[in-house]
Design a protein around this nucleic acid. Structure first.
Length: 726
DNA sequence: CTAGGGTTAG
């Protein structure tokens, strides 16, 4: 009997040779070693022991010199893989760069193996689903788990919490969490992390309190989640408390935890605390350096930022990105582009999508279409994966640089879209005065089953405002909450005030403001004030202005708008009173500044500028323009003169010095006549400049694209795309 | 003999 049941090839359960080979696997440092062991296993027949073969798979799949390909080939040689072997491969793929293959192997197993997935299989394959953010897939696994009666396993449930969290479904994650009967530390950590990363820092901290109340002892991972929540909440008080909590409870502080504390200090605005910790840290890595660098850059301390940058052991792309994006976000787009340029020369790191997004955004701010277009080509040439972030930035860049057609090309050519891509395209149409097209696109977006968000509504209301679509604007505003569940914020109210005020419904705008459930913002009053100028309503303007100044006493824009209205109605005494007041309180009008890009170089003109090398030519061009326009009957409109110039003949001259005129004149001399002149102005275009640009576009047969603070003016054949509604 | 939770740049 004993002889009959013995296997043909006798394999002792734990033979010494077996143990010896296994211990050799742990000592492998390269693939060659693995091949030798593999060969030895085949020779001795040990390979056909599922456990031994699985160890070989694990070693080749998860080691530092890993080759998943090889692991898979090893797997394919195994005649009858058991469940453990399958799990090994599924696990290896789950944490690889191709988690989808984990799912493929899982499915193969369902078809080929007579064994069913067990409690070990699911955490792996759910991890793959989390990586893929594949909600439906993971939900399917969840169903299988319930059917297989595995739904009480705490390991599986914890991975489901993590899975729903990484898909952004916090409610589902929380529901699973609540259903875990025997919650362990990882359950709490998973849920806290999910809340912290899902932009619910309050809930994360509440859960941490609850955990304490249940006497579950937190560890370093818990604190990472809590600190990340503090950083998101910008609550330094609580952050400091967390640090002392870590000390009091003797939680092991490793490099990662120190980095998290560092980040918390930076995000909460205390670079000083961050620096103190940074100097004391026994060990630092790239993350520590980059976080510190980012802290200085975000706070505008570029001297220190550069010092850190130079001192870092290696300048990775994240470090460059920290500099570029902080410049771009702190209103220093030129510095952002200069840094990008340095990166290109330096070649120490390769631009990634974050770099390109920030740089495109800087191009958009400056109207630098040459560089922006160059980056577009770069993306194609380098075969950089287009994601929604990049698509959004490209659409935004082309729109803001005045090339709406290119923006539409990008929009129409991408496969992947999200709500931000659609919203950016709607914004592009809006700023070019194509209100109807923006509304059509909104309908298409709904057809594509993309849910509009707060940004979408800001943009669509903006479209209505620029195109004078008052009824449509009212409708969207009322529908946004009732139909789409987006609660109007103060920005949406400001848009509505703009829509109503601009179209002359000043009374209705005022009533609308009175019924607002929140306090009006500076920009809301500014919108009303601008409407008062357009429709010349001195009384309401004074009201709006005083409300605005109460919120922001040093807002020079408000004084300028009000003085415009006084000037328009001939109240010159009030104009001078305002001017005196501004001078006495040290308030200066923001100087008008226009820029134009010629052959990739941005030329800037301040109002009255005369430092440009071609100043002489520019001014003589302006004289020529003035003479030509006079001959077609143009009379300068002096009421647009906002500079408080008192002497009459000075006014006409000052009008000629407006920055947009200088930039247009420069464009006329420096560019080929077939190219449109693209100008970006920091303020709203003045009425006289608007008329002049229209005339130039006719007389000189030149297209002019003028972007002002609020929108685009596309001058062609003597007309403007705004139809004079601005 | 296999599991689950992690810090940086948009």
């Amino acid at each position: 009997m004993a002889a009959l049941s013995a296997p043909l090839v006798s394999l002792p359960r734990y033979p010494t040779a077996n143990n010896h080979l296994l211990s050799l696997i742990d000592q492998c440092t390269n693939t060659k070693h693995l091949y030798q062991i593999h060969a030895q296993m085949l020779r001795t027949g040990l390979f056909f022991d599922p456990y031994t073969a699985s160890r070989l798979i694990t070693a080749s799949a998860l080691s530092s010199f890993s080759s998943l390909d090889y692991a898979h080939r090893v797997f394919d040689q195994i005649p009858q893989p058991n469940l453990y072997t399958w799990n090994t491969l599924i696990r290896a793929y789950a944490s690889s760069s191709q988690p989808n293959l984990s799912v493929v192997v899982f499915l193969e197993m369902l078809y080929q193996s007579c064994e069913l997935p067990n409690k070990f299989t699911y955490p792996f394959v759910i991890k793959a689903a989390s990586e893929l953010k594949a909600l439906r897939l993971g939900t399917g696994f969840h169903g299988m788990i319930v059917k297989a009666s595995l739904a009480s396993d705490v390991f599986i449930l914890n991975s489901l919490v993590h899975f729903y969290g990484s898909c952004g479904h916090l409610e589902l994650a929380y529901r699973v969490f609540l259903n875990i009967r025997n919650k362990d530390l990882v359950s709490w950590n998973s849920m806290i992390t999910t809340f912290a990363q899902g932009n619910c820092p309050k809930e994360a901290i509440e859960l941490f309190r609850e955990m304490e109340a249940e006497s579950v002892k937190p560890n370093d991972i818990t604190m990472l989640g809590v600190l990340s929540a503090c950083a998101k909440k910008v609550d330094i008080e609580f952050g400091r408390w967390v640090c002392s909590y870590i000390e009091r409870n003797e939680i092991r502080v490793n490099l990662t935890l120190n980095n998290a504390i560092l980040d918390m200090y930076v995000k909460c605005g205390s670079v000083e605390d961050a620096k103190r910790l940074f100097d004391r840290m026994p060990e630092k890595d790239v993350v520590s350096w980059t976080t510190m660098l980012d802290g200085y850059a975000q706070s505008g301390n570029y001297d220190e930022a550069h010092r850190i940058f130079e001192a870092m052991p290696s300048q990775n792309i994240a470090a460059w990105n920290a500099l570029i994006s902080s410049y771009e976000q702190n209103g220093k787009p030129k510095e952002a582009l200069a840094t990008f340029h340095k990166l290109q020369i330096n070649k120490s790191a390769k631009p990634d999508e974050v770099t390109l997004v920030s740089t495109l955004s800087a191009c958009a701010q400056l109207g630098a279409i040459d560089l922006g277009g160059w980056i577009h080509v770069y993306i194609k040439k380098q075969e950089i994966k287009m994601n929604c972030h990049l698509t959004t930035s490209l659409i935004d860049m082309y729109s803001k640089c005045g090339d709406l057609e290119k923006a539409l090309d990008v929009f129409n050519s991408v496969e992947k879209t999200d709500v931000f891509v659609w919203s950016a395209m709607i914004a592009g149409l809006a700023m070019h005065g194509r209100g109807r097209a923006a509304i059509d696109l909104f309908s298409k977006m709904l057809e594509a089953k993309v849910k509009p968000n707060a940004v979408t509504f800001t943009n669509i209301l903006c479209a209505c405002s620029h195109s004078g679509l008052v009824d449509e604007g009212r409708n969207f505003f009322h529908q946004m909450e009732t139909i789409y569940g987006v609660v109007p914020g103060v920005k949406h109210y400001a848009c509505m005030v703009d829509i109503l005020g601009r179209s002359g419904h000043l009374e209705e705008a005022m009533e609308f403001i009175e019924k607002m459930p929140m306090a009006p913002s500076v920009s809301l009053w500014a919108a009303l004030l601008a409407s008062c100028r357009l429709h010349v309503n001195v009384e309401l303007a004074e009201q709006a202005c005083s409300q605005l100044l109460e919120l922001d006493p040093r807002n020079h824009g408000a004084y300028v708008l009000l003085s415009n209205i006084y000037a328009k109605t001939g109240k010159w005494d009030r104009v001078s009173a305002l001017r005196k007041f501004m001078r006495d309180s040290g308030l200066k009008k923001e100087p008008g500044c226009s820029s134009i890009e010629i052959n990739g170089i941005i030329h800037e003109f301040l109002v009255g500028e005369n430092s440009h090398p071609l100043t002489k030519e520019i001014y003589s061009k302006l004289d020529e323009v003035a003479a030509k326009l006079k001959s077609v009957g143009y009379v300068p409109n002096k009421s647009h003169l906002l500079q408080f110039v008192e002497e009459e003949d000075m006014k006409e001259q000052a009008l000629n010095l407006h920055s947009e005129k200088l930039a247009i004149a420069f464009g006329l001399i420096s560019m080929g006549s077939s190219q449109p002149i693209r100008v970006v102005k920091n303020l709203r275009v003045c009425g006289d400049c608007h008329s002049v640009a229209k005339l130039i576009s006719g007389v000189y047969e030149r297209e002019i694209l003028l972007r002002d603070r609020y929108r685009f003016h596309h001058f062609k054949g003597g007309q403007c795309s705004c139809m004079d509604y601005w």
